[in-house]
């Protein structure tokens, strides 16, 4: 059902996809702030100790995972930057401001979970859900994990919709077609079917891929290819137009 709604949103362009993003962001920040305040009495700063006590390779792996999986995905935003009605400097400013805000909220979330859960954090698939479960405001307001679920569903829906839009735009540009909206449902079907097979044959193996192989594979797409593209553009001195946007070889998609 989520994919059908996403596909329908993608059919009508990026405006529909991003119109509600501000609302989603505000809601998520409010939920995060509320959770930090409500869990303040259960935080134990001793849970941060001992610091830097793991083997060096663990830190390298951790940084690599964090760089590629949550932050590296931001490279998908580059697909919509040519369609923005802003100057290059403004685009950079807003993108980096957004990245910075995302990083800060991510850090706050991680620190909250570590302070509340400590070493038990590794036992859970969703440590934040467990942290929310610990919120207790008496009999009436004890099931606050619904807030986490609301934030998770909202943000995942937005992420899936945006990535689906980017995929459709990429295929449309590669095949030089203007029939952008007619590809949305096909991409949605592919996403749904791949989503169903993703955990087969074992969910444990799938979880292991997240920190063993995914960072290595994604580095190629998220860092190597964009950097190579940038390098080639610099070497060929692109764009060659006089301050105007370069004319794309492929037909521009409808936004």
């Amino acid at each position: 059902m989520c994919v059908i709604v996403s596909s329908w949103a993608v059919r009508f362009g990026i405006r529909v996809v991003t119109r509600y993003s501000f609302l989603f962001s505000i809601l998520s920040v409010l939920i995060l702030t509320a959770s930090v305040l409500l869990l303040m009495d259960q935080m134990n700063l001793q849970n941060f100790l001992p610091m830097l006590d793991q083997p060096v390779m663990k830190y390298v792996q951790g940084i690599h995972v964090i760089t590629t999986i949550p932050f590296g995905e931001l490279v998908a935003l580059l697909m919509i930057t040519p369609n923005l009605q802003l100057s290059g400097k403004e685009v950079s400013k807003y993108l980096f401001l957004g990245f910075l805000m995302g990083g800060i909220f991510f850090l706050i979330t991680m620190m909250r979970d570590i302070a509340v859960l400590g070493n038990t954090m590794n036992l859970f698939s969703f440590p934040s859900l467990m942290a929310f479960r610990l919120i207790n405001l008496g009999e009436a307001l004890s099931r606050m994990e619904i807030l986490f679920v609301i934030a998770l569903v909202l943000l995942l829906f937005f992420k899936v919709t945006f990535l689906q839009y980017v995929s459709v735009a990429a295929v449309a540009q590669l095949t030089e077609t203007r029939s952008f909206r007619h590809l949305a449902l096909a991409v949605g079907a592919l996403i749904a079917v791949c989503g169903l097979t993703m955990h087969q044959p074992s969910e444990v193996q799938y979880a292991v891929t997240g920190y063993e192989s995914t960072p290595i594979v994604w580095t190629f797409f998220e860092i190597f290819i964009p950097f190579l593209t940038y390098l080639l553009a610099k070497l060929r001195k692109l764009p060659k137009t006089d301050g105007k946007k370069p004319a794309a070889k492929g037909k521009r998609c409808r936004t």
């Binding site: 993703m198 891929t209 192989s213 290595i216």
Partner: peptide, 21 residues
């Protein structure tokens, strides 16, 4: 038919090549 997830298939291949953590 049990279709294996592409991510898991890739992980197995990379693991066999020693290209995983």
């Amino acid at each position: 038919v049990e279709v294996p997830g592409i991510v898991i298939v890739l992980w197995r291949k990379l693991h066999a090549l020693g290209l995983t953590y």
